[in-house]
Amino acid sequence: MTQTVLTKPQTQRASSPSPAVAPAIAVRKTCNPDGVGLSHYVLMDKKVAR
Protein backbone atom coordinates (compact mmCIF):
# COMPACT_ATOMS: atom_id res chain seq x y z
CA MET A 1 0.00 0.00 0.00
CA THR A 2 1.51 3.30 -1.04
CA GLN A 3 0.07 6.46 0.35
CA THR A 4 1.12 10.05 0.28
CA VAL A 5 1.51 11.00 3.88
CA LEU A 6 3.99 13.80 4.17
CA THR A 7 2.36 17.13 4.69
CA LYS A 8 3.64 19.91 2.51
CA PRO A 9 6.68 21.43 4.12
CA GLN A 10 7.14 25.12 4.62
CA THR A 11 10.75 26.07 4.74
CA GLN A 12 10.35 29.80 4.15
CA ARG A 13 8.18 32.04 6.21
CA ALA A 14 5.70 34.23 4.36
CA SER A 15 6.24 37.97 4.60
CA SER A 16 2.95 39.01 6.13
CA PRO A 17 2.03 41.15 9.14
CA SER A 18 1.63 38.04 11.32
CA PRO A 19 4.33 35.46 10.52
CA ALA A 20 3.04 32.18 9.08
CA VAL A 21 3.46 29.11 11.23
CA ALA A 22 4.84 26.05 9.53
CA PRO A 23 2.40 23.14 9.66
CA ALA A 24 3.31 20.27 11.94
CA ILE A 25 4.50 17.06 10.31
CA ALA A 26 4.13 13.63 11.91
CA VAL A 27 4.12 10.35 10.06
CA ARG A 28 4.13 6.76 11.25
CA LYS A 29 3.57 3.80 8.98
CA THR A 30 3.39 0.23 10.13
CA CYS A 31 3.64 -3.29 8.73
CA ASN A 32 4.19 -6.85 9.84
CA PRO A 33 7.78 -6.92 11.13
CA ASP A 34 8.40 -10.61 10.48
CA GLY A 35 11.54 -11.08 8.45
CA VAL A 36 12.25 -7.40 8.35
CA GLY A 37 15.94 -7.41 7.85
CA LEU A 38 19.44 -8.63 8.22
CA SER A 39 22.64 -6.85 9.11
CA HIS A 40 24.69 -4.15 7.46
CA TYR A 41 26.72 -6.68 5.59
CA VAL A 42 24.15 -7.88 3.15
CA LEU A 43 21.15 -6.16 1.70
CA MET A 44 18.57 -8.55 0.33
CA ASP A 45 16.44 -6.87 -2.28
CA LYS A 46 12.73 -7.37 -1.86
CA LYS A 47 12.25 -7.78 -5.58
CA VAL A 48 14.68 -9.73 -7.65
CA ALA A 49 14.40 -9.30 -11.37
CA ARG A 50 16.60 -9.12 -14.34
Binding site: T2, A26, K29, T30, C31
Partner: peptide, 11 residues
Protein backbone atom coordinates in the same frame (compact mmCIF):
# COMPACT_ATOMS: atom_id res chain seq x y z
CA UNK B 1 6.38 1.56 1.78
CA UNK B 2 4.55 -1.11 -0.21
CA UNK B 3 2.73 -3.29 2.27
CA UNK B 4 2.63 -0.66 5.01
CA UNK B 5 -0.39 1.08 6.48
CA UNK B 6 -0.54 4.58 7.84
CA UNK B 7 -0.85 4.66 11.61
CA UNK B 8 -0.32 8.39 12.09
CA UNK B 9 -0.51 11.29 9.68
CA UNK B 10 -0.93 14.46 11.67
CA UNK B 11 -1.09 17.95 10.25
Amino acid sequence: DDGTETLIDLA
